[in-house]
């Protein structure tokens, strides 16, 4: 394995890299590659930003969907039934 990985190799290993999983020489090679390759560095920024973007975008709506309200109503009805003599 050569010291400086290609763009394809770097992109393939970025999640492993972000978690510190590869051996130190591999991490160093990726780190150097990222210093010089703006496309791969931007790709890494995109991967890092994704969880935040997804969390905001997929946050629960203020009003629960009808299916949720129905599920709660069914459970309440079951509780009433249990309590009935």
């Amino acid at each position: 394995m050569k010291f400086l990985p290609s763009c394809h190799e770097v992109q393939t290993e970025l999640t492993e890299y972000a978690e510190g999983a590869p051996p130190i020489t591999r991490r160093a090679g990726i780190w150097v590659h990222l210093l010089f390759c703006r496309v791969c560095a931007g790709f890494l920024r995109g991967l890092r930003a994704l969880p935040g973007v997804a969390k905001h975008s997929l946050a629960p709506p203020e009003v629960p969907p009808e299916a949720a309200t129905r599920a709660l109503a069914d459970v309440q009805a079951a509780l009433l039934k249990q309590k009935a003599p």
Partner: peptide
């Protein structure tokens, strides 16, 4: 395995623009 014509590839700007679009 390197990017083809990297100068013509758009740069990822997720953090700056996506938050605006969120």
């Amino acid at each position: 395995g390197h990017h083809q014509e990297p100068d013509h590839l758009p740069e990822w700007q997720v953090e700056a623009q996506a938050h605006h679009l969120v």
